[in-house]
Design a protein around this nucleic acid. Structure first.
Lengths: 337, 337
DNA sequence: TGACGCAATTGAAACATTTCATTTAGTGGT
DNA sequence: ACCACTAAATGAAATGTTTCAATTGCGTCA
């Protein structure tokens, strides 16, 4: 316990510098010395102290990732993509969950600054401008994840959510629905606002189509279920025939509430389209039509951009990558009979 | 950038010791000095360097958590419980995903040792004895999560999986099924072996009941789907009438494959019981009967045990907490008509 | 006025590593 | 026998924080 490089040096009968060399560039040390030192390390159970290492190096071998919701499979997929890519460069990903809460987000930004991480990948809550400003002022390379921007201070990786919203609504319209409703919130979430905007655009192109906005307080299964229950109790004349949920969790909640008691059937009475195409979407009560995003690709691309920025020259210009979403049709939006 | 406590001291016209005191025990410093120092910190944009802090302190303010599968909601719930509880003590949780892979697990153990974490919470892959031995040898407080043990070197928090397996099988038998099958693997996973053992026990108590074991290569939706597809193609005489899946992901895969093409109906032809009672279970094709574990309580309890060990005296004896699982009945196991 | 006590402040030491300018030892050439 | 050169090893300095023994300054009491 508490073995240091100095103890190893003493035991092996060499200097501390040599031990460090064995650790970091064994080719510069004679084979016999390497063997002696390795043996000493083994015998003493020496483990490098990362804190001291980082202190000397000036920064850590990790990158921070702040997501809006760890329990959303979309984000765990993004995280996995980032981890795998980071591991290639010998970096570790520190995963922080903001839970769509600005204070928690700020706490993680603080933590990562104190840890002197290589850089930060962040899916910001709201506009998060004060946190982002701070990051930029400190000169910490930052990549915005799932949030398009034209801000030259940050690279970004995102998916075109307006296009996604358009795809979803267009699909509902093409399968004969006219009274649509968008379910999700809060609108401060950029993802929500964009997907809604895309849907509105599609609806505006069809003369007799309408789009209602039903707000939720967050994008969870539970929130979806609550909305579903209230829809179930509506007067038949007041019923939408197509629902577009801001994400799959909400969509699954809706599905669950509507089909409960067999009150309304999906897709006959109401069609549902979700967003993210999480693994569970295909296993839902009624397999869910959804908008797919290349989630793990988003994560790995984010790390790519970060690494580019890390070893960049002065004239470096940041990239803004935007992926296109894809419509995945399943039963929950089968055409009206 | 690169501001140190020394820069702050210069700027504020005080000594470094005083700056440190302002940071750590402001009550020992005169109000006017506190104000001066705070102002300097603000102006310079000083951010404490955690590496230096940890180096001096000897250990970090984090605890490591290694789980078998981050994309399994059960484990994200455990993680959340741990994070919340850790935050109360000002500690951060570093989340590592072993993906049921011994090498990845070992890599995280190494990382956490190098980081000099407060302690490690680990849901071990297999018996993991070499990693656990190492942890113990280094004197790092370690809590086994979701893995019962009588080993006095480690505290543990677990759920009685044998009891859970028994509950599941008993329920299937009580609702009239006799030809059961257990789906899951590999058997090296203690969770799998125990749940199977519990099921076997229940089946043994009923004269004309049988239990088949269908192995999978991991506990994912995809693996479940594969088994489901093979079952769908079986001869009618060879069909089980009750399936017990090692976890909900597998159960959802089964459900999905079986109900696809309407080949077999759940629960009429085959009943299904899952394990973990993840949020999605209630939103499945057919709402899933499952065995519930107090997941976030497991996480918070693990941190509790860790903290007890951290400030323990010599005569300290470690605790082995075992929670009891609970049967949650839903449609997927409705009694045969 | 001098001594004492107390609060506030100081500054050097310690933490474990890496780096780098030097030193040491050994080899080959003339 | 001497020099030049290289490979290997050395050890002090530097990283940024916290701690703690020592010091300063100030007011109080005799």
């Amino acid at each position: 316990m508490g073995m240091s490089v100095r103890d190893v040096a003493t035991r092996a009968g060499v200097s501390v510098g040599t031990v460090s060399n064995v650790l970091n560039r064994p080719d510069k040390v004679s084979p016999s010395t390497v063997a002696k030192v390795r043996a000493a390390i083994e015998e003493l159970g020496f483990v490098r102290n990362d804190a001291a290492r980082q202190l000397r190096a000036g920064r850590s071998l990790s990158i921070g990732l702040i997501v809006l919701d760890v329990s959303n499979p979309f984000f765990t997929d993004v995280a996995r993509g980032a981890e795998d890519r980071a591991a290639e460069d010998g970096l570790t990903v520190l995963l922080g969950n903001s839970d769509e809460n600005e204070d928690r987000e700020a706490a993680y930004v603080d933590l990562f600054e104190k840890q002197r991480v290589h850089g930060v990948l962040i899916s910001p809550v709201g506009d998060a401008s004060s946190r982002l400003d701070a990051l930029h002022r400190r000169g910490i390379p930052t990549v915005l994840v799932d949030r398009p921007t034209t801000d030259d201070r940050f690279s970004s990786v995102a998916v075109d959510d307006v296009a996604g919203g358009y795809l979803a609504a267009q699909h509902l319209l093409e399968t004969g629905r006219r009274t649509l409703a968008f379910v999700g919130g809060p609108q401060e979430l950029r993802q929500v606002a964009d997907r809604l905007a895309g849907a509105q655009k599609a609806v505006a192109e069809i003369a007799d189509a309408s789009l209602e906005y039903i707000a939720t307080d967050g994008l969870t299964v539970l929130q979806g279920r609550k909305v579903g229950e209230s829809i179930r109790e509506r007067d038949a004349t007041d019923l939408p025939d197509g629902l577009f949920a801001a994400n799959d969790l909400v969509a699954m909640g809706l599905l669950q509430a509507l089909s409960m008691l067999g009150a309304l059937s999906v897709p006959e009475d109401i069609a549902i389209v979700g967003y993210d195409d999480i693994d569970f979407a295909t296993a839902a009560v009624v397999p869910l039509t959804s908008i797919r995003q290349p989630s793990s690709l988003i994560g790995s691309t984010a790390v790519d951009l970060l690494m580019k920025e890390a070893d960049a020259s002065a004239d470096f210009t940041r990239e803004h990558v935007v992926f296109q979403p894809e419509l995945i049709v399943r039963e929950s939006s089968a055409p009206k009979a």
